[in-house]
Write a protein that binds this DNA or RNA. Structure first.
Lengths: 98, 98
DNA sequence: TTGACATGCAAGTAAATACTTGCCTATTAT
DNA sequence: ATAATAGGCAAGTATTTACTTGCATGTCAA
């Protein structure tokens, strides 16, 4: 049971186009149910669930069970962390404001 | 021969920890040869080459052949594009400066 | 010009990934 | 109560991925 680093879960979650699409779909309309999310992807509900599981593991999506429905919410914080660790660091040095 | 979108190559390239390590190693010291890069990873030279091929496909690394050596250079531009497309867009709305 | 060094190319393999099908459970509406 | 709805769980499969081993080629130094 080797611990998988956060960065790994995060980049793995982002590596699949269907999962990135789910992020876009949630960004357009947060709080959708599983079935609503399924309408945007050409695969079975179970496959979508598996993608969402990875997004949850990466902490990019949080869910709330409400009655028989499951609502999905976007969490942009891990994306910010990618920025700080992997993008700002690699920026070409900009001219410092004078 | 379906065309693979750039975003896909980019996120796939970033999905592997060895490849992200290569980016860090190059960031610390740009222009290293293949053998130099190999010293930082616990795998065969050929495996490292394969990782670098993916980084090149994603346009994150450019190479120059010099004599019998191959020099590797980091290109941060695609990371900026990730920021614009996938991070800025998802930022929690910030208070507008008044 | 011969040997050592730096890299390229190709085929094989084990594990991970992205699905599928099939069935089960919980909640709601009639 | 019953049926339809929303979702969970698990096992099977085809493809992709991350390596390996083995060998070939180009460059440089002695």
């Amino acid at each position: 049971m080797a611990k998988i680093p956060d960065a790994d879960l995060l980049f793995k979650a982002l590596a699949d186009p269907s999962r990135r699409k789910l992020l876009d779909v949630l960004h357009a309309h947060d709080g959708q149910t599983l079935n609503e999310l399924c309408e945007h992807l050409d695969m079975t509900r179970q496959a979508v669930t598996q993608h969402i599981d990875l997004l949850e593991a990466a902490n990019l999506v949080a869910t709330v069970r409400q009655g028989r429905e499951k609502l999905h919410f976007l969490n942009p914080v891990p994306l910010q962390q990618i920025y700080e660790r992997w993008i700002a660091k690699f920026e070409k040095p900009r001219l410092k404001a004078l």
